[in-house]
Design a binder for these strands. Structure first.
Lengths: 199, 199, 199, 199
DNA sequence: AATGAATGAGAATTCATTCAT
DNA sequence: GATGAATGAATTCTCATTCAT
């Protein structure tokens, strides 16, 4: 199924993936008909089945592609963000920005992998876990307030990214850098003005 | 269609709504079959159409119910949260808690109205707008840092609520009060420890 | 799937079975389209699936019906044919006739259950086994020549019945009684004339 | 189509025939896919159509091959078995053995030509007819009992051969010689012990 | 002589919905 | 107020076959 030889086949396969990503992203899985995918890819239905076992299969391939890349990103971020960061804020900032950057790269794919599929929850959970571990380590080093429950903080961060991605990033209203800046600023310093009450 | 006649009819109608909410919430719109709804409601397919025009119609009715109640909640919160609040933090806290409370009430409905339907985006946008206006007002009163872009803050708050609802509230891992406390604490004071650097 | 309530449904189900039997019998499994079955039964395709899970399912139901009835017949014949038969020839004759009778009853079903399905081989094997046991018992009592290998004889008998059914019975050229008489006559006495050589 | 050019082409053609015979014989006509044939023949689908017009065509070629050879065999048997045979039993025996021999030669082909195709019925009919004529001639010469209806006897013989081929020959359980011996012994002398009743 | 790529035609099956009672 | 029975309209998928090289 996967390994076609020639250049042309590989092209068609890619066209199908691209077309499918687009259709899925605007219409969702069920409302997307194979007929629509092949039409957009300028092929016929049987050709679709030359490259993919089923509609589910192409969907999953898109998902898996997205997920594995996101996972890889997460891991790379952890490495460079790692412990003993003496400028925590900047580290966090650049990490968050990298994530937004990634999510902005292929919007169709982001919509599918991040919002449209049930397993995304699992993925987010994984990411949350990794994030939590990291945050807790930094917390132990005194970089963050000790009362904060880092598991929840991690989930909050993910929620923010998720939602901002949906409303600002995928719509093109804001760019990764500005979003990251705002998120981190808010998260790090909170909403209160400088001199306000000592808690 | 909306034949509000006998007691029994009213009962059947409610059973269908409840059954539909459950099915939709675990399976999503497309994967939910009318046959499954009526089975759960212990009725037959034609009876379904005695009370609802179509599968879409019952879904919309559930959505609308949820949405109008959420909108009502939002409005009521704005009133009591209103301006001239001298203890902003507590106001925000009780508002956020009320929202979590509401979302925890009927979990099936929340899943449907909040996560499963495309129009939820519009709803969230509406809420975000209202929230933003409110936050900006408070910001002008000096309660919040002036550099913050309140539109984004509003979206962040919504993202946090959304995601925590999904991972902690609907799963029963955490309760509204505790979630609200954490969210607000984080949002208001940020992550840095008390005495840390002036920004 | 199976248990419909009303009379009408039961009727439709039977019509489908009858139609399917006919189509399968003349066209074989693959060449028979569900569309042809329902047309003959004066129904529509979805109705077919109201009563049967799939094309395979209705085919199997026909097969199973045929097989269980044939098995029942075999068993009943064994009982009455049993041991200590002092007029072996007549016993065999009436048994063979009963079999032809059965095979002539519903010709469509016979064609399907006897010739068109792969599992028929197993069925025939079963029958052969039973037959063999019986024949051997009679052989030990001295009713049959001791040099004969009864397993093979059983297979021969089945082959004869099978083929005569195909060419004479299902085509209506000969009737059960006459076929049985000829088969048994041949099998019991062989082809040689009365006084011919001692072997 | 029948381009009998190079050596290599001829080879491929043969490989396809062999592969097809195998596939057809275990899977039947409809369940056999052209893709499976070419895979087994280590060729590609377009190559298949270089040598055969269609799936039907290759099937027919196999059938025709089998049929014409079987027909030839029958004819040769008739010649040597011919009239004025003074040892009828032995003549019949060697004829039957020759048939089993033939059927055992290429088992795939036998399965296809003898059991899998609808036209086999016609072929068997033809053989039956020839057989009948021969038997009747011998009957007139007094070699066989006059009460026997030779048309039926012929069919019986074919049925026996058919079934024994299926259950013993193609499965490798018994060999042609032994099968022929048993069939003829049974057919000629019948089942009754030597001295039993005069009919 | 052979193949990578593509397709026309069709088949089974599903599901929301309605008819008749 | 309810239901047994039926269906229109799609949709996915398969397979033999062919085009272009």
């Amino acid at each position: 199924m996967k390994s076609r030889k020639g250049r042309k086949g590989e092209e068609s396969r890619k066209r199908l993936l691209k077309a499918a990503a687009h259709e899925f992203s605007i219409r969702g899985f069920h409302e997307t008909k194979v007929s629509a995918i092949v039409k957009r890819a300028e092929l016929t239905q049987p050709s679709f089945y030359l490259y993919f076992q089923s509609k589910e299969a192409i969907f999953e391939e898109l998902i898996n592609d997205f997920h594995s890349r996101l996972r890889k990103l997460t891991e790379s971020l952890l490495l460079e963000t790692g412990l003993h960061a003496n400028d925590v804020t900047n580290k966090v900032l650049s990490a968050v920005e990298a994530v937004f950057q990634f999510l902005a790269e292929d919007k169709d794919l982001t919509r599918i992998g991040f919002f449209l599929n049930p397993e995304a929850k699992q993925l987010k959970q994984d990411v949350a876990m990794v994030l939590k571990d990291n945050l807790e380590a930094e917390q132990r080093l005194g970089y963050f307030r000790s009362e904060l429950e880092m598991a929840t903080v991690a989930e909050c961060l993910i929620g923010m990214i998720e939602h901002l991605t949906d409303s600002y990033l995928l719509t093109g209203i804001k760019d990764p850098a500005s979003l990251a800046a705002q998120v981190v600023n808010l998260l790090i310093y909170g909403m209160l003005p400088k001199g306000s009450d000592a808690r």
